[in-house]
Amino acid sequence: MAQQQNGGPMVEGKVVVVTGAGGGIGRDIALALAAEGARVVVNDIGTSTSGEGQDAGPAQQVVEEIRAAGGQAVASTDSVAESLAAGRIVQCALDTFGRIDGVVNNAGILRDRFFHKMSLDEWDAVLKVHLYGSYYMSRAAASHFKEQESGAFVHMTSTSGLIGNFGQANYSAAKLALVALSKSIALDMQKFHVRSNCIAPFAWSRMIGSIPTDTPEQQARVAKIQQMTPAKIAPLAVYLLSDAAREVNAQVFAVRNNEIFLMSQPRPLRSVHQGGGWTPQDIAQHAMPALRSSFVPMERSGDVFSWDPV
């Protein structure tokens, strides 16, 4: 659990909902929040990483861990992928603790498939949990945040969306859309002192536990990824939900072991201008050759974050 530093607990008295908190990153965030004084709604429907099966155990187990350490928590097993169920998750915070101060949109599933083989169900299922789920949760909390003129959202995005990856069109689309959703929430609700930020986590979890380990090289890569424990993500999430982060809004961070990154957001790179406008032929002959040196390379996350975690 997170250690107390620099005086009192960072989120003393706050009530925070953490979705997908039965294991992995969500669990560590829930534990860290509780250690820093928050009362936590531990939400997890207890399915596999692909969304199958259901088990109330994981959420309750994390609640017991928090209580054993002297913290306050309650389990929720509703699904974020349905609006009414998401509403019940927020209501659980209100019924149990009397208020809501923060939401961590962490719940997720994977249905990896190369795009030309992806089924409609594989697309829908992932969008429903990651994007719709984050919208449903945020929308359910937003009315309460507006009324009390305070509140904070932390959404889990991914470099698969920010940069790119193979076989994850559904996941990547949802995760990049989540960045735009977060920015919109931040812009629309800043006048009510509501903040919305994203974290792209690098961490060993069930989500990436399916990486093959058939060769020594693959085994070495997985060993390095395993150093990046979910506990490394939790401190930034706790900070972003605290009053100490009151000036931090609409940002995208990444956490990779002991590194914290501020990620860029799309801005113009360069332009070309032609007084009389452009024909397709002019574009081919002049515009594209002028712009080509600034083209964004066809990289995936591993190409950009190419060094070993430290």
Rank of each mutant, 00 (worst) to 15 (best):
M1R: 14
Q3M: 09
Q3V: 14
N6V: 02
G8S: 14
P9F: 12
P9W: 01
M10C: 01
V11E: 01
K14S: 01
V18Q: 09
V18D: 08
G20N: 01
G24K: 09
G24N: 14
G26V: 13
D28F: 10
L31V: 12
L31D: 01
A32W: 07
A32C: 04
E36A: 05
G37S: 12
A38G: 07
V42C: 02
D44P: 00
D44M: 01
S48V: 00
S48H: 03
T49M: 01
G51M: 05
G51R: 00
D55H: 00
A56M: 05
G57A: 13
Q60A: 03
V62A: 07
V63F: 01
R67I: 12
R67Q: 15
A68M: 04
G71Y: 02
A73L: 04
V74Q: 03
T77A: 01
T77G: 11
D78Q: 11
D78K: 15
V80A: 09
V80C: 07
V80T: 14
E82F: 05
E82T: 03
S83D: 08
S83E: 12
L84F: 00
A85N: 07
A86T: 09
A86D: 11
R88H: 13
C92P: 00
A93R: 01
L94W: 03
D95S: 04
T96L: 00
F97A: 10
D101E: 11
V104M: 02
N105W: 11
N105K: 09
N106I: 05
I109A: 10
D112Q: 14
R113M: 13
K117E: 14
D121S: 15
V126Y: 10
S138I: 00
S138N: 03
S138W: 02
R139Y: 12
F145L: 05
E147S: 10
Q148K: 04
F153E: 12
V154T: 06
H155T: 05
T157N: 06
L162R: 12
G164Q: 12
F166D: 11
A174T: 12
L176Y: 09
A180C: 10
A186C: 03
L187Q: 08
D188T: 06
K191V: 13
H193P: 00
S196F: 00
P201V: 11
R206P: 04
I208K: 05
G209C: 11
I211K: 14
I211P: 11
D214G: 13
E217N: 14
Q218V: 05
A223V: 06
A223S: 07
K232R: 14
P235W: 07
V238S: 04
Y239T: 13
L240P: 00
A244C: 00
V248R: 10
V248H: 07
Q251E: 15
A254T: 09
R256D: 08
R267W: 07
R267V: 15
L269S: 14
S271M: 10
H273A: 14
G277F: 06
G277Y: 08
W278H: 13
P280G: 11
Q281H: 04
I283M: 08
A284H: 11
H286E: 08
M288D: 02
P289T: 11
S294F: 11
S294K: 06
F295P: 03
F295Q: 13
F295H: 15
V296G: 05
P297F: 03
E299F: 07
R300I: 14
G302A: 15
G302N: 15
D303Q: 15
V304I: 04
F305Y: 15
W307R: 13
D308R: 08
